[in-house]
């Protein structure tokens, strides 16, 4: 903090200097030196950020791209030799019969998760806008799924969703809804739905928190004015809340998509990509290739496919936010 204030004080000085004395060669050259020094300082302030980005973001990304064009095996770690194979890794992973399954699963998983998280999150956010007793406590309790380590959540859900002795089947059975155990995690048609359900549960707090924050920003006067014109209830939401919330919504959705695309631990914890690859996504397949089959080149290639997909959404987000600023 003190650094910034010091600099702003120095920066304001040249202005006062010039107004006190008028012109002169020496004065001008001094001003130039000062200007140059100031530029150097500006660059120096960038250095920590640039170094950090280059070390922790630039290097891994570049390394991953290079790796995806190499025959990178366990031996590479010891010998350092990784023969260049061009696009062979991409050709292998993209033409594999599993790729289309994983791509479809990734799309369904992301779409389902985002839709569920967003709708429930928004509904809860709107609900908590009202004033009622225990509002604060309930809202903080809803954050719990976010606070639990993912590996813990998935272990607990794996137990809840068990076919024979899981809590969910027991509950539904006692209600008389089902008579035989539903194989939530071991049926090829249900496993993806179950995994999406768990991921929705995990994602609700994030959506709720951000959307609730966005709702708080909307001035009450708008609703008052609207109600005079007859906009209450659903109409108020449609014509006041929704347009005012749009910038926040785009942030939540784009971040949600990027987070969901790369989900790994929940799926590994719940189903390991099974049964019969019905919950296999690009992220889990890439992990499998690299760390179970030791085909690091192919794993990296598939990882890059995922990065490109995420990047598309990141660009969409940047354009959307720029448009919002322009408006």
């Amino acid at each position: 903090m003190s650094l910034t204030t010091d600099v702003s004080r120095t920066a304001s000085r040249p202005g006062t200097g010039t107004s006190r004395s008028g012109g002169g060669e020496a004065q001008a050259s001094r001003r130039r030196t000062r200007m140059r020094r100031e530029r150097i300082f500006q660059w120096l302030f960038l250095v920590p950020a640039v170094v950090y980005m280059a070390l922790f973001f630039g290097y891994p990304v570049v390394k991953n791209v290079v790796m995806s064009f190499q025959d990178y095996t366990t031996a590479t770690f010891f010998t350092g030799e990784a023969p260049w194979v061009g696009v062979a890794n991409y050709a292998t992973v993209l033409s594999s019969s599993l790729f289309s399954t994983s791509l479809l699963n990734t799309a369904l998983f992301t779409l389902g998760s985002i839709l569920g998280q967003f709708v429930i999150g928004l509904a809860l956010a709107v609900f908590f806008q009202r004033k009622f007793p225990l509002n604060g406590i309930l809202r903080s309790l809803l954050l719990l799924p976010w606070l639990l380590p993912l590996i813990v959540s998935s272990a607990v859900w794996r137990w809840i969703l068990d076919k024979d002795s899981g809590a969910l089947n027991r509950f539904l059975g006692d209600l008389g809804i089902i008579h035989t155990g539903v194989p939530w995690l071991t049926s090829t048609s249900l496993a993806l739905i179950a995994v999406v359900g768990v991921n929705i549960w995990i994602g609700i707090p994030f959506n709720l928190t951000i959307l609730y924050g966005g709702l708080q920003e909307i001035p009450d006067e708008l609703y008052e004015a609207g109600s005079l014109d007859g906009a209450t209830g659903w109409k108020a939401f449609r014509h006041i809340t929704w347009p005012m919330l749009r910038p926040v919504v785009s942030v939540v959705l784009v971040l949600g998509v990027v987070y969901t695309l790369k989900v790994l631990d929940i799926i590994l914890g719940l189903t390991n990509g099974g049964p019969a690859n019905s919950t296999q996504t690009i992220a889990t397949q890439s992990y499998d290739l690299s760390f179970h089959e030791f085909k690091f080149g192919e794993g990296a290639a598939l990882g890059n496919v995922l990065v490109v997909i995420s990047l598309v959404f990141a660009v969409l987000y940047l354009r959307a936010s720029r448009r919002a600023v322009d408006e």
Partner: peptide, 22 residues
């Protein structure tokens, strides 16, 4: 200028630390 010079030292230190860390 005194204040500006004062800022350089911690800054240089921070830069050196970051560059030197790896």
């Amino acid at each position: 200028m005194k204040s500006a010079r004062r800022t350089t030292r911690p800054l240089a230190l921070a830069t050196a630390t970051l560059l030197g860390l790896p």
